[in-house]
Amino acid sequence: MTVVAAIVRGPGTNRDDDVADALRLAGAAPRTVLINDLLAHPDVLDDAQMLVVAGGFSFADALGAGRLLALELTIGLGDALTRFVDSGRPVIGICNGFQALVSTGLLPGSGSTAALGANDSGRFECRWVRLAAKSQRCIWTRELTEDIDCPIAHGEGRFTCDDATLEALDANDQIALTYVGTNPNGSRGDIAGITDHTGLVLGLMPHPENHIVPRQHPLFTRGNNSGLGLTLFQHGVAYAASALQSPYSPYQHSGASL
């Protein structure tokens, strides 16, 4: 059965098409859901095996990146989001989606707090970075065998948290992805992405959805053929598919499409 991935689109979400392309290539069936439709019918999540909060400038980032979208995903949706995770289905928040998931408290989770502050450069930065997979807990990254190359495009991607949180993230194997070589924004511990205690929820600033075919790589004309970001989505989709087929599937799948 094909994994249905619900991609949340709020006003100002703008990388939903990109992540839909990535999920399609990874074998999933992406379904973009407008936040207004989701608020009116939170049960559409019941029909999805994966939830994606895509990048962009939801609500213009007016009160801080992702904060208003986070309000919609928590107060607006009630407990639908936590139920989604509790039922064992994977969630990914990319860039603005990461900022929103942090703002909901789902990441890092367990009452810890983190934030994504303005880049050290003080500017929006668009450049390619290299990511190393660190976490064996995170279902998205634990099977990654090579580094991922993909772009960042953000002004507020500096991961920050207090010392205790950083230690806890490290101790709990929640540091999912780190920057290799250049740390583009001054993130603490070179952290590019973190997972929650379940390993189901991944938040990351870079855009693996923009490296799904080799010719997207800036060094393609120099012969580069590695570092696809697609692999991250393939692992997420594979996990969702196995959870879907498992007789111990923790949730009831209605089979209907969105």
Partner: peptide, 11 residues
């Protein structure tokens, strides 16, 4: 200047 523009979106 160029790096302040997102020139990667849409892939």
């Amino acid at each position: 200047i160029i790096r302040r523009y997102d020139h990667e979106i849409r892939g």
